[in-house]
Write a protein that binds this DNA or RNA. Structure first.
Lengths: 152, 152
DNA sequence: GCAGATTCAATTGCGAACAATTAAATGTGA
DNA sequence: TCACATTTAATTGTTCGCAATTGAATCTGC
């Protein structure tokens, strides 16, 4: 049984892209934390707000599709954002199964306060924008291939 | 106020590398799930086992440093792995503050059963190994820069 | 040797994340 | 029309992830 050199052993933690992604996600979270604390948001809540700042009045389902999250995650999260007066949840009148999510004036206003966040993250990454964009595109392509496999 | 084109707006979800990483981590998790179910492990538990398969008899602290996790996460997770008879937790005799984690025979044996996991992930990623290695190195470098900023 | 600081694991409390199930509304085919 | 399937959100239960705190063991300077 030929022993592989450590740098090629696929069962080693440091050789796994998945752990790289997993640990990078946590590192991002820790950088975001103090920035989002000032807005009173957690990172997943911030993601929901980003979606709503682009387009308002969406059903829960559609927010879930954009963020790859299901109602088990979103329902309580949206209730917390509603309790913080950032959005309102209303049953659709055309289709009573849907709950539509609409920003309150405070929810809209928060977009301005959040404007500096991406720049702070960029600074922390100590990386050229062009490099980050290239990396992002690669990671998104990988994610989409993985998600395609799940659907099989 | 010059409106940026959508492809450059840093406040757009699709332009954020962080969301790419966040959603890729979840996609990986979903691909791992059925593979790890057969081993009776969750993904974070699998990470701990990877660490211990490389080196046994580690204090909780050291496992935490390798995985970027703290005792609040690890203590209950390790207790569950102990309940599954995969490892044993023992207070160090030289330093009673430390708890040493050692694999049981079953814990060691699981390494063989887990050997095929990385290959299945590789297949799901539909990507050349060389490309994945390059991506992994970039992501690790980014992660380490982010973690360096946090320590400031 | 001893007071005070530091280290380490455990605990508590809260917010994700997701599987599985439930209940209500809507759609579909005969 | 009516039985049956599908869609949508909510709910329940388990596991992470982390901040903050606790308590015990160890280290440090004097």
């Amino acid at each position: 049984m030929a022993r592989k050199p450590a740098t090629l052993d696929p069962q080693r933690l440091d050789n796994q892209i998945c752990f790289a992604v997993y640990s990078a996600a946590h590192a991002f979270n820790r950088v975001y934390k103090p920035l989002l604390d000032r807005l009173g948001l957690t990172y997943p809540q911030y993601l929901v707000m980003l979606v709503l700042w682009e387009r308002d009045d969406l059903p829960v389902k559609e927010i879930g599709e954009k963020l790859f999250l299901d109602s088990g995650t979103l329902t309580p999260l949206l209730k917390r954002l509603e309790a913080a007066h950032l959005l309102k949840r209303t049953r659709s009148r055309e289709d009573e199964r849907q709950v539509l999510i609409a920003l309150t004036p405070q929810g809209h206003a928060l977009k301005e306060k959040a404007r500096s966040v991406p720049q702070s993250i960029l600074a922390a990454s100590k990386c050229a924008v062009s490099e980050l964009v290239a990396m992002k595109d690669e990671i998104v392509a990988l994610r989409d291939r993985l998600n395609a496999v799940i659907g099989e």
